[in-house]
């Protein structure tokens, strides 16, 4: 997908207010920009963000400048920072068949059945604690899962951008979390055999 200059990759992030979905998307935006994508647009949920309430953020990535800033309707990738959101929000709305669904979940991959999609699962919450972060810090870790399953940017660039974003806020631990998640992420291919997005 990176070879076609016209192709745009659209990532929608689901989290809760305060979980840092925007920061995570920002880090990935920065990393993709630094990796040579000329068009990167990260647009947070527009409006009144409240701690705990479900929020979404969109990230569009392209080789060329992006002119259309309207919200993502048909994402290629959906990232879920808290598997409990799956009960509240239909996170797969518009997700292209064969698209990638990344979930932070304590449950094994087999518990997350989405036959039309590639699914990547990691226990980001647990790995974050192992990395030395306070419980509930998942935004740096989830980037590792995206790094592994998304194949957009390598983990070294992501790690550098995480370290820069978290200056003064445990940068090393945050990088370690992303790297632990990168290593632990498990991926399943779509069972209905849809074409790769």
């Amino acid at each position: 997908m990176q070879d076609d200059p016209q192709q745009m990759i659209q990532i929608r992030w689901h989290g809760r207010g305060g979980q840092g979905a925007i920061t995570a998307a920002k880090v990935v935006a920065e990393a993709t920009f630094k990796s040579g994508y000329g068009g990167v647009v990260m647009a947070p949920t527009f409006g009144t963000e409240r701690r705990g309430a479900p929020v979404s953020t969109s990230l569009k990535i392209s080789r060329e400048k992006i002119y259309d800033l309207s919200p993502i309707r048909f994402p290629d990738i959906v990232v879920v920072l808290d598997y409990l959101i799956l009960n509240e929000v239909d996170v797969t709305v518009g997700l292209k068949p064969g698209g990638l669904l990344i979930i932070n979940s304590p449950r094994p991959l087999r518990d997350h059945q989405f036959p039309d999609y590639r699914v990547a699962v990691a226990n980001v919450t647990k790995l974050g604690i192992e990395a030395g972060l306070r419980k509930g810090i998942v935004n740096s870790g989830i980037i590792g899962a995206l790094g592994k399953a998304g194949g957009l940017v390598d983990i070294e660039m992501l790690s550098r951008c995480i370290a820069a974003e978290f200056v003064g806020r445990k940068p090393e631990e945050n990088v370690r979390a992303a790297q632990l998640v990168y290593a632990a992420t498990q991926i399943s291919e779509p069972s209905r055999g849809a074409a790769n997005a």
Binding site: G39, V40, V41, M42, F46, L69
Partner: peptide
Amino acid sequence: GYYLSHTYMP
């Protein structure tokens, strides 16, 4: 507002 103010782009 938001389309540019809160959106990240290069």
